[in-house]
Design a protein around this nucleic acid. Structure first.
Lengths: 221, 221
DNA sequence: ATTACATTCCAATAATCGCTTGAATGATAT
DNA sequence: ATATCATTCAAGCGATTATTGGAATGTAAT
């Protein structure tokens, strides 16, 4: 007598759950949400060994969360589907709502999250059309070149101070990066304000923007 | 130097993932999606020991997926939030889309899923208003009494054959149970058709109906 | 072919998980 | 108080997981 089909299904779904059950793998998924990446490139960004990164990717692949294709010497990984991003969003929502620990980190580190008054995509589009804002992408150059918001300027966080002059002080800066928990844009807004500029964060990152059906550009500036 | 705040957050989110990473726990969540339950009652439905069920519940509680309250001698557990149900739905969607194994089970066991032509909630409401259908709840009596669709008739699957006469053969039967992977309604529809009745499944179960903001009733018939 | 290089596989470690059994807790009922 | 009952805790087992370093695979360039 075989196991109930419902449990068989749940076993498969649980495998997806286990795949989500590791912080590094969530990190990988955040990076892949921005576009295809090779194993070594990912490993470098994450600070993991390639062997380890490869293992995590295999794990994610078996769970149906990512797919891969070969291009020349490299094997590029990407999210299987938009449904994966929605799953991540649902996971984050549950965490934000029900885990005191999450709330604490958000409050302590991403301090004054509310005071940052994040800009919604709709608002950004409206103000951008009126020429009131500078859209600032603070991710590393390679990520910017792969894909970015239309009309965005790229100043990686590490170069922010040296390149302040490139920003028009008349306009408000709206900074974004990889996603809702990417620290780059928080940090950027704080530093820009220290230098007397008006700056706010976009409420989400590039992947959420794309998921919302909004346009993106790719290539250098 | 402390661990990055993003990883701290992801560690918390990963804990939720791990909580989803066990078939029995998903089963528990399906049952709790229908309403509050005590530990022993759950254990009986799931076929687990109480100690084991309790452990799983602790695990789910720590992950913020369920909450509990004491009522007299019993401790009742419930889902923390609607967001938990949305998370489950997102998990199922990813599985259905990207896991060949899930597809296989759905095809093999829940055979001819399409041929069953599930009825959507909207359609059910319309046809029900016209008096064209019998809404049939095939879950065990206790679950029916806790909560059911308005106007539904309760015939647990185990009693289906004996109580066929209670069903008006002029009307089409629309059966439902706990959720999209609950086997009861599939089985019920198959058997009803064997007996010459027109029968279809509701596309989802009671929890999804409630999540959609549609009304439910409770108490005996 | 041979070399170079990206990626995956393999083996070994320590840590964690799922489940069982039996005792401990905590609230209610007598 | 004492007894009862639902639930949780604690200890222990076999199985699984994350990680690492080194070997093996497979593709591309010479």
């Amino acid at each position: 007598m075989s196991i109930s089909p419902k449990l068989k299904l749940y076993e498969a779904f649980a495998a997806i759950g286990r795949a989500l059950g590791n912080a590094h793998r969530l990190d990988i998924l955040e990076h892949l949400a921005q576009g295809e990446r090779g194993v070594e490139a990912l490993a470098a960004k994450l600070g993991l060994t390639t062997a380890n990164t490869s293992q995590h990717l295999q794990h994610l692949k078996q769970a149906g969360l990512v797919e891969s294709r070969r291009q020349g010497k490299f094997i590029l990984y990407r999210l299987s589907d938009d449904s994966v991003q929605r799953l991540l969003a649902a996971l984050f929502e549950v965490g934000e709502r029900n885990l005191a620990e999450v709330d604490k980190v958000l409050r302590d580190y991403f301090q004054a999250r509310d005071a940052m008054e994040p800009v919604s995509p709709d608002e950004l589009i409206a103000r951008s059309r009126q020429g009131l804002v500078t859209v600032l992408d603070v991710r590393p150059r390679d990520e910017f070149e792969a894909e970015h918001l239309p009309g965005a300027v790229n100043i990686p966080l590490s170069e922010l101070e040296e390149r302040l002059s490139e920003l028009n002080p008349e306009k408000e800066v709206v900074a974004y990066c990889r996603g809702p928990y990417c620290v780059l844009s928080f940090e950027a807004v704080a530093r820009l304000r220290d230098h007397g500029l008006r700056a706010r964060r976009l409420s989400d990152g590039l992947p959420e923007w794309r998921l919302g059906g909004l346009p993106v550009e790719s290539g250098a500036e």
